[in-house]
């Protein structure tokens, strides 16, 4: 009985390894192909699509660097993502701190207010949002995007940060109060340093979708000089539609920074991106 079990277990283990391995190839191969093709000339791509590039030529990247707006898009995306996440973390942590560390009238009401914000799909309110931002002069303006992303991601940020802040023992706060620290000082010097890992998680949770988004720029940004990377790629694809090598190089360049950070920080990334779905 036990030998039989072991045998079938071995077979099962083999099947499992094959299944996982094949799946890993399916997941990674397209990305590797994308990266390899970016070093190839158009001709090479057509004649020998699966082989390694003959030489690692950076010509395609040079074209992108000198002849396209991609570097500009890159800077715009960095500004938008960076500032949105910064404002989100500061404002979101402040609100979460109030909700998690103080008893006051209206605490539950305000918590519910943020919670209900989680369920509102802002995309469907794109028309009023457009009119509103137009009135504020924020259309075709990176600041407009920052406002939208900050607002959209605030409920989840407050939600995640509240969870982490609640887990800190209240005796720490009491102890700092006995030590004479002001409420502001307790927050900044005692409590917030203890939740920096949580802030990294919340930061990744927000940064990745903001960096990757192209729906809101599609509607709110028209000038080439303010386009974000994801959105800019669509324009770039129209322009270079027949030069495959350059297209692959553009995709690779767009994917590279986030992929590098992911590979170095995969644990935090996975924790961060699944933070909303795991209680």
């Amino acid at each position: 009985m036990s030998t039989l079990n072991k045998k079938s277990g071995d077979l099962g283990t083999w099947l499992m390894h094959i299944f996982l391995g094949v799946n890993a190839v399916i997941m990674l191969y397209p990305i590797i192909m994308m990266a390899l093709s970016s070093f190839k000339t158009n001709q090479e791509i057509f004649s020998s699509p699966f082989s390694l590039p003959k030489s690692f030529s950076f010509d395609n990247f040079a074209i992108i660097w000198s002849q396209t707006n991609v570097p500009r898009y890159f800077i715009n995306s960095t500004i938008v993502t960076g500032l949105s996440v910064l404002v989100l973390l500061v404002v979101g942590t402040m609100a979460a701190y109030a909700l998690s560390r103080y008893k006051f009238k209206g605490n539950i009401m305000i918590s519910l207010f943020f919670l209900s914000g989680l369920m509102l799909p802002l995309r469907l309110a794109i028309i009023p949002l457009f009119i509103q931002l137009k009135a504020l002069g924020l259309v075709d303006n990176l600041l407009g995007l920052i406002c939208i992303y900050t607002a959209m991601s605030l409920p989840a940020t407050v939600f995640i940060m509240t969870g982490f802040l609640r887990s800190l023992p209240s005796e720490l706060e009491d102890s700092a109060r006995m030590d004479g620290a002001s409420e502001f000082r307790i927050m900044v010097e005692i409590m917030v340093p203890l939740i920096t890992p949580a802030m990294v998680i919340a930061g990744i949770y927000n940064a990745v979708p903001i960096w990757n988004d192209f729906f809101f720029p599609l509607i709110f940004i028209q000038s080439p000089e303010w386009k974000t990377l994801a959105q800019g790629l669509t324009a770039f694809f129209g322009e270079y539609s027949i030069n495959y090598g350059v297209l692959y190089a553009g995709l690779t360049l767009a994917a590279l920074p986030i992929m590098l950070v992911f590979i170095v920080q995969s644990r935090r990334f996975i924790a961060g991106m699944t933070a909303g779905a795991i209680k």
Partner: peptide, 8 residues
Amino acid sequence: LPVILSTV
């Protein structure tokens, strides 16, 4: 890995 990449 693909999850972190932009849909674009």
